[in-house]
Design a protein around this nucleic acid. Structure first.
Lengths: 183, 183
DNA sequence: TCCTACCCTCACGTACGCGTCAGGTTACAC
DNA sequence: GTGTAACCTGACGCGTACGTGAGGGTAGGA
């Protein structure tokens, strides 16, 4: 019944505190524990999880790796490899390789997003010309728009939209014979 | 039995061709159809889906939006809104808003990845000092390493690892009383 | 002592984007 | 006619990272 006092003396926090400190949900922290990523330093007499403040760093680490595209399982493997390494120097070399690979991937991701950025800008440039368009009907006529949009080619972001093949009610496809179509 | 000839004359391709042309799986294309994102122009007498070559653009569009973080459902909503718009000009304005928002998000994503890039570089810088470390035991001693790593603070990517709380066999947590700890 | 917020352990549910059979049909070349 | 690759429609499975109860105990202050 003196748990909090004892816990406070020892600098321990409960799962809710950890959650608030990291922006995660309590459930998420439970999950990390189930997957072997994080463990409470101890438990209260009644079974409450009690963590040291350093646990916050671990959760932030999880968050970082998550941002780098690691799955929780992969993080677990990283931890296992590190702690089970024969030599510290090898464990560190292992980490360096890992980080180097992720650095490549991250840079590739940046490049990809920059390409998307360009696509968006192109799309916006193209659409800018639509602002002073005097057309007063639906979008069906936009499909065959011949206005000059100041862009050499219609951007993919726009041209992909201008096609039939939109099903109002998903799921079942219609069934038309070829013969009925080819004149 | 003259389907292919007819299809070829009409410039139609089958689902496998579309898949190869876009790098998607046939199943994926079926899914897009189920979700109302794409429809074959027609069907062969035997029920084979037949697409115009323009369908390739639509699939590429799907891929683009996917890269921008849209879910297939959201893409469907975009298409529905566009095709159901009263005025073409309004539909275009709608698109502009959408693209502008995504442009912000994409730039935010780039910034985030650049921060991660910096974290990785810091981590690698820190670990570089470990290459000529003469330590010959396991990683447990690394936890208290006092070497100069040329970095002011231990990077989060590294410090998050150096903590207990690793469960060799996941799932069940141990059960220790507080009293047993705080002597 | 009692109230209330917080915590506990199951355990099932969810959204996404397909993968993967199964059981059968079609297209087309030889 | 026949072989075979490609296609068809269900329909269930999967991995990820949690959300969401249910049913019940705990902590700590008034």
């Amino acid at each position: 019944m003196q748990d909090k006092r004892i816990a406070l003396e020892a600098g321990l926090i409960r799962v809710g505190d950890l959650a608030r400190a990291t922006g995660k949900s309590v459930r998420a922290i439970h999950l990390y524990e189930e997957l072997g990523l994080l463990q409470p330093t101890t438990r209260s007499a009644g079974g409450f999880r009690l963590y040291e403040r350093r646990a916050i760093e671990r959760v932030r680490w999880i968050d970082l790796l998550h941002g780098l595209g690691f799955s929780l399982q992969e993080m677990r493997e990283v931890l296992l490899r590190w702690w089970n390494a024969e030599l510290g120097t090898e464990a560190m070399a292992d980490l360096r390789r890992l980080f180097a690979r992720k650095l490549d991937e991250t840079r590739a991701a940046i490049t990809r997003h920059q390409q998307l950025e360009r696509e968006l800008i192109e799309g916006l440039d193209y659409l800018a010309a639509c602002r002073d368009c005097d057309q007063t009907s639906g979008t069906a006529t936009c499909v065959h728009c011949t206005r000059d949009h100041g862009v050499a080619l219609e951007p993919a972001l726009v041209s992909g939209i201008k096609q039939a093949g939109l099903v109002t009610h998903p799921s079942r496809a219609p069934f038309v014979r070829v013969e009925d179509l080819t004149h």
